[in-house]
Design a binder for these strands. Sequence first.
DNA 1: GCGTGACGTCGAAGCGCTTCGACGGGCGAA
DNA 2: TTCGCCCGTCGAAGCGCTTCGACGTCACGC
Lengths: 337, 337
Amino acid sequence: MVKITDVARHAGVSPSTVSYALSGKRPISEETRRRVEEAIRELGYRPHAGARALASSKSNVLALVVPLRAGIHIPVVMRFAVSVVTTARDYDHDVLLLTQEEGEEGLRRVADTALVDALILMDVQLHDPRLPLLRALERPSVMIGFPASSEGLTCIDLDFKAAGEACVDHLAQLGHQVVALVGSPPEVYVRQTAFAQRVVQGFTAAADRHGLASSVHPCEAGPGDARRVAERLLREQPALTGVVVHNEPLLEPLIDAFEKLGLRVPGDLSVTAICPDELAEAARVPVTSVALPSAEVGERAVELLMRKLAGDTDVPEATLLAPRLTERASTAPRVAP
Amino acid sequence: MVKITDVARHAGVSPSTVSYALSGKRPISEETRRRVEEAIRELGYRPHAGARALASSKSNVLALVVPLRAGIHIPVVMRFAVSVVTTARDYDHDVLLLTQEEGEEGLRRVADTALVDALILMDVQLHDPRLPLLRALERPSVMIGFPASSEGLTCIDLDFKAAGEACVDHLAQLGHQVVALVGSPPEVYVRQTAFAQRVVQGFTAAADRHGLASSVHPCEAGPGDARRVAERLLREQPALTGVVVHNEPLLEPLIDAFEKLGLRVPGDLSVTAICPDELAEAARVPVTSVALPSAEVGERAVELLMRKLAGDTDVPEATLLAPRLTERASTAPRVAP
DNA sequence: GCGTGACGTCGAAGCGCTTCGACGGGCGAA
DNA sequence: TTCGCCCGTCGAAGCGCTTCGACGTCACGC
């Protein structure tokens, strides 16, 4: 193995000079730098990561904790992970993959052994048991999603309130006057992050702002539920022409149910959703939707982390990503009766 | 930060004794071990990963290179990755996530900087450009999939030949006498690993063994192709009652096409597939299939790597995992005409 | 003409751990 | 009894890098 002393000898300088030439932490003459670089190239020198970590107390590795829980859309996780890795590389960092399964002990382990410099957590719950640990840890972290209190932590996610609004805005713009929100199953409103509530807030606010008649329905997503939900919506709001679905498994079945009840999508009924793009695209009727911008979240998460690692003290605690609505085949202007 | 000297002092022993108590590389008296363990617990000691890596020239980290290419089934990759991480943890190792995008330079980087001890590569191509590098690298590696020549490398994958056979065996057992293989698009047979060919071999061998009439059809997987393929199959083999599909995007459309042509699945036609379980399960008619055992592949890959790291010299170059066929709704006994 | 400071470089001291050789004590074999 | 050996422990020497303080040189300002 070729080491820094070899490079130094070959270039006719001291090891510290090689180090400074590499890190740029002290001025080095043009001539010397050139010689060092040449020596490095000729010898094929690669600094030993462990030695570097030991001497500098920086591993240049980030931990990424991915969820395993059922109900998580895998491609979204994967896209996010890839985006984290790619962005981390731009900052000369690598990514260590951890599973949720490892729990708090896993976090403590990689943090305390100095295996990683910082952490990224996905799938943060409202009252995530890892929160106290994260606050106590001496290493910076960024969480995807918002817990009940993000005090002293850094969080990032899609702006679900704005996403709810965007869907309603789109429907209002198309002339729809009676809209409904088909929400996530009731337990999601309790267990998970606050995102489900925020969709409701956005939905309601936008509907009020546009002067639309609106209603909100948290819905189970079992096999037979779609039909029942569709019937209930139509019973309660016979003039319904716009639906926002924030319930992934229910999306397709619900559209089917509406059509079976004689309503054409988007002819009689416009449907928008908040869901991963794959789902919206793959549907029989491709659905106009606000996507979870996983790649962007990953990128931004790493950027936030890098700022924290650089000692930036005014990194925002909360970052909300603006929703982007993609129009597809499931929405159309309202046809006056 | 609490270090090994702190533990040593607290336990009244020397640092080396603490190290040996931890690693078990030299005998330590029961009494001493107890005192050391207690000191560790009381002080909350965690060995510094970098220092350890430097001193022992072992990072206890594996690199996992995941593919990005379109056409790869993401959940399979993810399941594989999770299984690698989980298994690696059982062996006290962590996993560094790399993307294919980083290419050979990325492999060289993590290997040469001693960031990782060993590598796992997914999605290995027939003539993968990384092969020479892997052979040259001083670190062990395991590849998922088989290149043209696996000489001197360690590879593991589903036994696709046996998978092809298993499908035919199943159909034969149900009494089917005329079978067809709907294979991957022609370019797959060229570009990728040899797995597509192996399926053909297994299919043909088993059909011959059972004395069935059989035919093989590499197929494109465009939107209109399903219908054409179905028609062609029925034209060429009017008595066809068993189909093996090794072409993921074509699976569902093909079944639909058959039904539109008046053939009931599984009433008139039994269909089996080689594809990820999700796909087989999610189909309108759940498909009897041989799955890609991603979790098992991940586990076995790590085990192979651990053996190599332990200095085991007779680790098999090729490991073929036995297929497991799951019966679902798409196959049934042949009904005599 | 001399003090001052920036520039460019060096040497040495660690970073926290593992590992090697050494050593004292105890025990079994001769 | 004595020799030799194994057990259990220690001290010291690194592992390969970064970083701090120091030093010589040169240019500039007064």
